[in-house]
Structure formats: structure tokens, C-alpha cells
């Protein structure tokens, strides 16, 4: 069930949670662009540090760590590919020439591979900060106010609301079928997959019945009564949101300036001075 735990959004309130999701998304996009601009270890390290205050202010450090841990395998893979490719196809740009033999060249290669991995970690980290601190309700609202069709936003929030319900139901069905003697962990891979059929069928049938009842209830509450619905909630930009917009824009300007005019030294050259 731990897979579904992540979907259960608890209503938490913090400065970061209360930020406008659109602004938060803009901030994440800026981080994204910056991470793509730079291939330098030191620059990426700075980018990695930027969202950390958000993590701690929102008190989502545990969940944040968990999402990073989830990405660890992929990070290792990225590191390995970069290292191996760098070894066999060194480019003159990075200051190493074939064959890679001196200690210096190895260190440069290592730094570069770490930087590429860090770029990936920055992306994962900033996106997870966004999703960990944005309630599905807010997200749906943001979609709606960005002129995404209401049907889509509704489907999104409803899906989020029913995921834990369906997860519970799956567990109940599994227990019930096990009590009747169904053995899930038996046989080869093919058989194991087939074992899940007696669980999937009632789950799907129930889901369909549920959606029909849901549709009935929506219809009874005047779904489709007017072309343009109103909304109980409204996203309004507050002072903190403007501050974050300004910060994001400044960051972007700085990043582009540095990228164009300031050569960021690599750690290796810095240390060998």
C-alpha cells in the first residue's frame, strides 16, 4: 500500500503550501531551465541548494528525502552512463583527450559525471517540492484558471480523491479472495500475473458501479446547468507570490548573465590552483 501513500494528500498549511501553485510552478520551471543551462558542478550544486529552504519551511523533508531515494537507482544509472561514455568518447571541450590516463583527466571526468547526475537530482528535487506542497485542490484550481477545460480539472481532482478509496477496496478484495484460498505468490511469473485476475475483475466492476453512482449524483446536482460555471475558490496572487515571482525572474536573469559572460570554474581547476 505504500505506493498509494504518496497520493494521500494531508491538508497542511505553511507559507510554501499557501503559495499560488502557478507561481510555484513558474519557480520550478525557472529551476528547470537553469539546470539545463549549466553543466558545471559548482553551478548545479548551487541550484540544488536553492529549493532546500522550501523543503524545510514546508516541513516536507521526510517525503522529499523519500522521493530522492526513489530516484537513486536512475541517478546511479545516469552517473554510470556519463562516466563510461566520457571515458570512451572524451571531448576536447571538457579538457580531456583520449586516452584518459592521467589522474587529472580521471578527476575531470568524475566531476563531469557527478554534475550530470546532480542535474537530474535538481530536477527531481524541485518537482517533488512542487508536488509535495501543492494540494490537488489547488492544482485543479490552477489548471482551471489557466483555461484548461473544467471537465478535465474535475476528472483530475476526482481521480485524486478516489485513488485512496480504490486502494482500500483493492486491499479488501485481496483479503477476501485470499480467505477463499487464492494464492497470489505462487507459480512462475505468468501464473502470478494470472493470479491477479480474480482481484482485478471485482475491482473494475466496482469502479464502474461507483462511477455510475457518481454520475447520477452529479446530474442530480445540476451538472451542465450553465455554460460557464463559477467556482467557490479563487486563486489570487498575494504578496508572498509576487515576492517569489520577482525572485524567480532575478534568478533567471542572473543565470543567463553568468552563462553568457562569467566562466564558472570547475572544482578540479579550482582545487589544483
Amino acid at each position: 500500500m505504500s505506493v498509494f501513500e504518496g497520493f494521500k494528500f494531508r491538508k497542511v498549511s505553511s507559507v510554501v503550501h499557501n503559495l499560488d501553485p502557478r507561481v510555484k510552478f513558474f519557480f520550478v520551471l525557472v529551476l528547470f531551465v537553469m539546470a539545463v543551462l549549466f553543466t558545471n558542478f559548482l553551478a548545479l550544486l548551487v541550484l540544488f541548494l536553492v529549493p532546500l529552504p522550501f523543503v524545510f519551511v514546508a516541513k516536507v523533508n521526510r517525503q522529499w528525502l523519500r522521493s530522492l531515494r526513489g530516484a537513486a537507482l536512475l541517478a546511479i544509472f545516469i552517473f554510470a552512463t556519463n562516466f563510461i561514455f566520457g571515458y570512451f568518447y572524451p571531448t576536447s571541450l571538457s579538457g580531456i583527450t583520449q586516452p584518459v590516463d592521467t589522474l587529472f583527466e580521471y578527476v575531470v571526468l568524475l566531476e563531469r559525471s557527478v554534475a550530470m547526475t546532480l542535474r537530474f537530482v535538481v530536477l527531481i528535487s524541485s518537482f517533488s517540492v512542487f508536488f509535495l506542497t501543492t494540494s490537488p485542490d489547488h492544482l485543479g484550481l490552477a489548471l482551471q484558471q489557466s483555461h484548461v477545460p473544467y471537465e478535465f480539472c474535475f476528472a483530475f481532482t476526482t481521480a485524486v480523491r478516489f485513488v485512496p478509496v480504490l486502494a482500500d477496496e483493492a486491499q479488501t478484495i485481496m483479503d477476501a479472495q485470499k480467505a477463499r484460498g487464492l494464492e497470489l505468490e505462487r507459480g512462475n511469473l505468468f501464473k502470478r500475473v494470472r493470479n491477479y485476475i480474480p482481484i482485478l475483475i471485482p475491482l473494475i466492476v466496482n469502479a464502474i458501479r461507483r462511477s455510475l453512482e457518481l454520475a447520477e449524483s452529479m446530474e442530480s446536482r445540476a451538472w451542465g446547468a450553465s455554460k460557464k460555471r463559477t467556482n467557490l475558490y479563487e486563486l489570487k496572487l498575494k504578496r508572498a507570490d509576487y515576492v517569489l515571482v520577482v525572485i524567480s525572474v532575478l534568478m533567471l536573469i542572473c543565470a543567463v548573465y553568468v552563462w553568457l559572460f562569467v566562466p564558472v570554474p570547475s572544482l578540479t581547476t579550482l582545487l589544483s590552483l
Binding site: A225, N231, Y233
Partner: peptide, 28 residues
């Protein structure tokens, strides 16, 4: 309806209660 679980679909109670009114395009 009979089953309370399948007639509430919003993520907060007030939003659920407002659903019909939103459909009527009532001012906020």
C-alpha cells in the same frame, strides 16, 4: 443517495456543498 461515499467527490466539504451552486453559476 444511499451510499454517502459515492455522492461526495470534492476534496473539501464546502467545495462539495458548493458543487450545485457552481453549476448554477452563482456569484462567489
Amino acid at each position: 443517495f444511499q451510499n454517502p461515499e459515492n455522492q461526495l467527490f470534492a476534496l473539501s466539504v464546502e467545495k462539495d456543498v458548493a458543487f450545485g451552486l457552481e453549476n448554477f453559476a452563482m456569484p462567489r
